[in-house]
């Protein structure tokens, strides 16, 4: 763990003591603290129902925390509407239904260019289509006609349009074919290299942790372990309980 990630108020993104849930009296998150530093790649792993996706929804404002708060560069985000949180510098890619199916690929990207001038938006979209060549040739097709992997690329590119400081990815490799899983991880590394902090929730835990600076293990809405990616991968308990024994060389 880096020192600054625990130091109060110095992290880029800070989630402190968050309790949240969808129905009254049922807490999906029961007091979670995590932090992401500038340019860091941080992975959250854990079993189903641990609250991983809920954590991202709280950060982006789709769910309001009952207790605790979320800060970006020390400024509070909770209580803001999702579109305001996005304009403060958070990008979010949901796991499912993450494109607008009846809009073309280009129009999908335009939807996140609300606060930029037309020329600037066009330049930014061209830049992102270069970063994601897999979707550049489908730019005028409705996104609903694309494959799951292509949609994931559209969703990631869309989230990057407003140049977020922190990108939140919810299970970006879930349900994709092997070649797209590879591509998704490759893109995550490339995005992070441009200075964007990335917080990723991932089922493909081994793969994600191996690339990550740090990781957290959530269980039943609480943080159980945290550490550098390699450290978590070597932690016997974490491997035993949350990652499963390696099958052969896999």
């Amino acid at each position: 763990m880096t020192a600054s990630a625990t130091g109060a108020g110095t992290a880029m993104l800070e989630v402190a003591g968050v309790v949240a849930g969808y129905v009254p009296d049922v807490d999906v998150l029961a007091g979670v603290d995590i932090a992401v530093d500038r340019g860091e790649l941080v992975t959250v792993v854990g079993p189903n129902g641990a609250g991983k996706s809920t954590l991202l929804k709280v950060i982006v404002g789709l769910l309001r925390p009952r207790v605790g708060g979320v800060r970006l560069r020390g400024r509070r985000l909770d209580r803001l509407a999702p579109h305001e949180i996005v304009s403060r510098g958070i990008g979010y890619v949901p796991q499912l239904e993450n494109v607008f199916p009846s809009l073309t690929v280009e129009e999908n990207l335009e939807m996140s260019a609300a606060r930029t001038s037309r020329d600037e938006a066009r330049r930014r979209i061209a830049e992102l289509l270069e970063l994601f060549p897999a979707i550049a040739r489908a730019r005028r097709r409705p996104a609903g006609l694309l494959s799951g992997g292509e949609r994931q690329m559209v969703a990631m590119a869309r989230a990057l349009v407003p140049q977020p400081e922190v990108l939140l990815l919810d299970e970006p490799s879930a349900g994709l074919g092997p070649e797209y899983v590879e591509l998704v991880f490759q893109k995550i590394v490339e995005i992070r290299r441009t200075g964007v902090s990335v917080l990723v929730v991932e089922q493909n835990a081994r793969r994600a942790l191996a690339l990550s600076d740090r990781g957290y293990v959530l269980e039943l809405g609480r943080k159980r372990f945290e550490g550098t990616g390699p450290a978590l991968l070597e932690n016997e308990t974490v491997v035993e309980l949350y990652l499963g024994r390696r099958q052969g060389g896999g």
């Binding site: 979010y92 607008f100 609300a114 869309r158 989230a159």
Partner: peptide, 10 residues
């Protein structure tokens, strides 16, 4: 198409 995606798209 998708109201909540529209929200988080900004």
């Amino acid at each position: 198409d998708n109201l909540s995606l529209a929200e988080v798209a900004g």
